[in-house]
Amino acid sequence: MSKEIKQTSLKEDRRLRMVDRTMRIYGNEPHALIETLHAVQESYGFIDTDLMQYVAEKLGVPLSKVYGVATFYHFFTLKPQGEHTCVVCTGTACYISGAKAIMDDFAKKYDLLPGETTKDNKLSLLTARCLGACGLAPAIVFDGVVAGKQTPETVSNTIERWFKNEL
């Protein structure tokens, strides 16, 4: 029963405490599902099947509903992310100010489409529907830090520095 072993090892996981805490704050009520999934993603970087099962049992939410909710909201990801993440804003202002060229560049240089991770697991490309940083279009989030007025060149500079472990 490899699943049970994994479950016990889950319990010892320190990251799980944050998830448990979130559920406790909401009294382990079913309506805490989305907040809990946020907590899962924040501590683990993504939402995996075992954790969905764990959350479902704790909150008393049907499995299919947990999966349905986790896949409905695009902020949640069911796949592990690479070492570095790059979120390209594809809001209107960014789109008309050149976000498309940046995305094309990712496809060309790193063979990456939105939602994908490079084979060496170094880099993930994600998109967001407007970060609200329209004044700085096009905006990109490099490992959680927003950078404005980006071009394909500035983006590949940052990424190359990641690859060379300079950042």
Binding site: P62, L63, S64, K65, G68, T71, F72
Partner: peptide, 9 residues
Amino acid sequence: AHTKDIMGR
């Protein structure tokens, strides 16, 4: 039972 639901959007 709520075995079935809809995923994605």
